[in-house]
Design a protein around this nucleic acid. Structure first.
Length: 258
DNA sequence: ATGGCTGAGCTACTCAGA
């Protein structure tokens, strides 16, 4: 089973790129973030035509997350954490992996910049609530996949210039510690697990030739619970979509799991 | 290099992204 996470930066502006990507990479399940549209304007019919069910938690203009899936996803919910600002940042559902009932958790973590503002506090509090809920979830379910745009650079090697980002909301030690705290509940950062020292990124901003200069960062992740580690076949950052015309600023990260 | 580039909503310009 191929499960992919991709922050598309607007599903409607990106529709051609998404369809081309699906044709090329044939994911079974796509976790989308930043769809930037309400449920009623999500192009579900277009995806239906190529064999994908849509499960959407949209929002006007900003945020919004969704699943596109060939297999049915059960028990889809958008209330995993209570969002204080009522932003659409999380959608969960259940699939079966090798007879293990598995919860898929698709997240779009707040950016948090600028630091020392209410935006930063919102990110921090969002992560605190999320970790608390994951801890609770683990008491009844050991098969969890958390994936999406975390807006967290885990380590120095995950950004082109760590000095420049040390006081940024994506890289501040306080935020990275939240990431470690989450992992320490019993997860692995699957990209880093299979690539101990490789420098690869999932995001390059649109400014001043960042893509061409490879000024990027690794902020989109797959955290898989220890119980599912034996099921994993591979993980891959697919840079091709970022090189196309009218790209998202993020590129897909692809997990193969049995 | 706190700039510059892109999308939504809307139709001039602001907000948000990271």
């Amino acid at each position: 089973m191929k499960i992919v996470s991709w922050n598309v930066n607007s599903v409607r502006a990106r529709i051609e790129n998404i369809l081309n990507y699906i044709k090329d990479s044939k994911p079974d399940i796509l976790l989308l973030q930043e769809i930037k549209t309400q449920n009623e304007n999500f192009p579900s019919e277009i995806f239906k035509e190529i064999g994908y069910n849509s499960y959407v938690f949209g929002q006007k203009s900003y945020n919004g997350v969704a699943f596109l899936s060939k297999p049915k996803i059960e028990n889809v919910k958008n209330d995993f954490v209570k969002d204080k600002l009522k932003q659409s940042r999380i959608i969960t559902g259940e699939i079966s992996l090798n007879k293990k009932k598995t919860k898929l958790i698709n997240i779009y973590v707040p950016n948090g910049n600028p630091v020392d503002t209410e935006k930063y506090e919102y990110k921090k509090n969002w992560l605190v609530s999320f970790i608390k809920k994951i801890k609770k979830e683990l008491t009844t379910n050991s098969n969890l996949i958390i994936s999406g745009d975390f807006n967290i650079i885990p380590e120095d090697i995950d950004v082109y210039d760590c000095k420049r980002y040390e006081n940024d909301a994506l890289f501040r030690l306080e935020i990275r510690k939240k990431y470690r705290e989450l992992i320490n509940l019993g997860f692995n950062d699957i990209y880093r697990y299979f690539n101990k020292s490789k420098k690869e990124y999932t995001f390059w901003d649109y400014f001043s030739g960042s893509w061409q200069k490879n000024y990027g960062m690794r902020i989109d992740h797959f955290l898989v619970s220890n119980n599912l580690l034996e099921n994993i076949k591979s993980i891959n950052i697919n840079k091709k979509p970022r090189s196309k015309t009218k790209p998202s600023d993020h590129t897909p990260i692809e997990l193969e799991i049995n």
